[in-house]
Nucleic acid binder design. Structure first.
Ligand SMILES: [Mn+2]
Ligand SMILES: [Mn+2]
Ligand SMILES: [Zn+2]
Ligand SMILES: [Zn+2]
Lengths: 126, 126
DNA sequence: ATTAGTTTTGCTACTTAGTTGCATTAACAA
DNA sequence: TTGTTAATGCAACTAAGTAGCAAAACTAAT
């Protein structure tokens, strides 16, 4: 897979991730470009950008899908085993670069893990 | 809130959690008692049992809801800050009792966190 | 610049998990 | 046994995400 053609939809969506480091939910993007892009297109572009290693995705506390820009990933290698932080006050979601280490579990082989942290963001702390 | 009346639905569902320590998804319970209980009832009973501290819930990798029996919880106190483990081979989900410690994050106040670990369960390891 | 081949898009319809409103039924305390 | 109120069933709905297919738009070759 991977992005093959530079289309308007891809440009518009990617630009949204470039102008802010925060994660953005698929639903939010659909709302933002309501008049400009079809929702199916939004889902498909996000999916493709993820395949291409440009974005990565995760689910928030309510099971809805968020995307954020990958930091050193490519089509072949992904380094996205970082936690995500969701502010319970304003709803903003960010990638956090701390390392959470998962202890081994007896009789089980661990492959991946997702960590979602919730609390108050710096903007809402005051 | 909390369970007030001992009904057939509550008994049937609770019994399912008693005979096995594993977590069970709401969807699965709806399927299991397809002929016996209405799906709305299943959702409502699970919700109420959670309020009452008898069960706790979490979302799996696909954003679907699972429930498991609480281990020392009551209506007022919840001790469910434990990770959950989902086997990628058989799909089984369990509570795990290891402690994952979340490091503090600069400028952010952490309140709760969810950890979902994926891998291979003891049954599927062979 | 035109064309042809292929990808991407829009649209409509669909799926699936979960929720809501409301009338009926079942607990249970008196 | 009866009256009150919680719990249930049913049908209709919501919301996130998917699928099929025809039309549009890239891109590369001519
Ligand atoms: Mn991230
Ligand atoms: Mn648990
Ligand atoms: Zn905030
Ligand atoms: Zn397994």
């Amino acid at each position: 897979m991977g992005v093959i053609r530079k289309t308007k939809s891809i440009e518009v969506l990617l630009n949204e991730f470039h102008k802010d480091q925060s994660a953005i939910s698929a639903i939010d993007l659909i709302k933002r470009f309501n008049e400009k892009l079809n929702k199916t297109t939004v889902y498909r572009v996000l999916d493709k950008l993820e395949d291409d290693g440009v974005l990565h995705s995760f689910l928030d506390k309510n099971g809805i899908k968020w995307y954020a820009k990958c930091n050193n990933c490519s089509t072949h290698k992904h380094f996205d085993a970082h936690p995500h932080f969701q502010c319970l006050t304003c709803g903003k979601v960010d990638c956090v670069s701390v390392k959470v280490n998962i202890p081994s579990i007896p009789n089980r082989h661990i492959l991946v893990s997702q960590v979602l942290i919730q609390g108050t963001c710096e903007n809402c702390l005051t």
